[in-house]
């Protein structure tokens, strides 16, 4: 972890004035790309992700087809202008890894067994990055999949937790992401209480980990409500 002299928490308030268990402003919108089967835009503060879903559709090349089940192809990408210093375009080590873990997070949610030989394509573009991009992307993917009408077991909620100066926090912003003691992105199914993504970068004791996970699962219910609201809004004029 990088070191900084700056105090991350002063008088119980974080860098951007939030309380430790407070999330940034959440905006969700469904159906932003008319040509996609399903799409969504999700922002947590200054982090914005756009998701487009196509399928289930025929999978090519043919050797990738599975005769007993469908597959997900998840593509996470950051726009060159999404960060302060221009990011080199195209997927690198980081993007490939995030695509894989996110795909594994989505697999238990879909009934892919009903769609043999097909693929569900999920394309994510981060147009504004300020920490917690992978969980924001998962929220967008969840909404886009539901919008596309792919059969799902549940919606999926992503939210990051972490630890700064010994205080557990949720929904890390970019600076906190860089200088925190540890950050823990989590994705889970709110109605089933199943965790499908849990990563950790940093050092935590078992007790600290447990308390962070508990905080995130609790706060995630708020994110779930926003998702439901966004989906229902599209169909109620």
């Amino acid at each position: 972890m990088m070191k900084t002299d700056e105090k991350m928490i002063v008088n119980g308030k974080r860098l951007d004035g939030r309380k430790p268990d407070e999330m940034r402003e959440i905006k969700m919108e469904v159906g932003v790309i008319p040509n996609a089967d399903g799409s969504a835009k999700v922002s947590f503060g200054k982090t914005t992700a756009i998701a487009a879903v196509y399928g289930p559709r025929k999978l090519f090349p043919r050797h990738k087809q599975k005769s007993d089940t469908g597959i997900i192809q998840y593509n996470y990408d950051m726009a060159t202008f999404s960060v302060d210093e221009r990011k080199r375009p195209g997927p690198g080590r980081r993007e490939t890894e995030i695509s894989k873990v996110s795909r594994l997070a989505l697999e238990p949610v879909l009934f892919l067994k009903d769609f043999p030989k097909t693929t569900v394509d999920v394309f994510i573009e981060i147009i504004e990055a300020d920490g917690s991009t992978r969980v924001t992307a998962i929220n967008a993917a969840s909404l886009a999949l539901a919008d596309a009408g792919v059969p799902m077991r549940d919606l999926i909620v992503g939210l990051s937790g972490g630890m700064v100066n010994g205080v557990p926090i949720i929904d890390l912003c970019g600076k906190e992401d860089n200088y925190c003691d540890a950050d823990v992105p989590i994705a889970f199914l709110p109605n089933k209480n199943e965790i499908t993504l849990l990563q950790m970068d940093g050092r935590l004791t078992p007790e600290e980990t447990k308390s962070i996970v508990r905080n995130v699962l609790h706060a995630g219910k708020e994110v779930y409500k926003k998702q439901v609201e966004a989906l229902k809004k599209k169909y109620s004029e």
């Binding site: 009408g149 077991r153 549940d154 919606l155 709110p190 109605n191």
Partner: peptide, 29 residues
């Protein structure tokens, strides 16, 4: 919405667009 609880399999029969887990019926779409 997907994953929403819509009834119990003891009182309802589940039709298209639903699935059963345990004895509860959930929506798929």
């Amino acid at each position: 919405v997907p994953g929403e609880l819509i009834g119990s399999s003891k009182t309802f029969k589940s039709g298209y667009g639903t699935y059963i887990e345990g004895d509860k019926i959930f929506s798929e779409f």
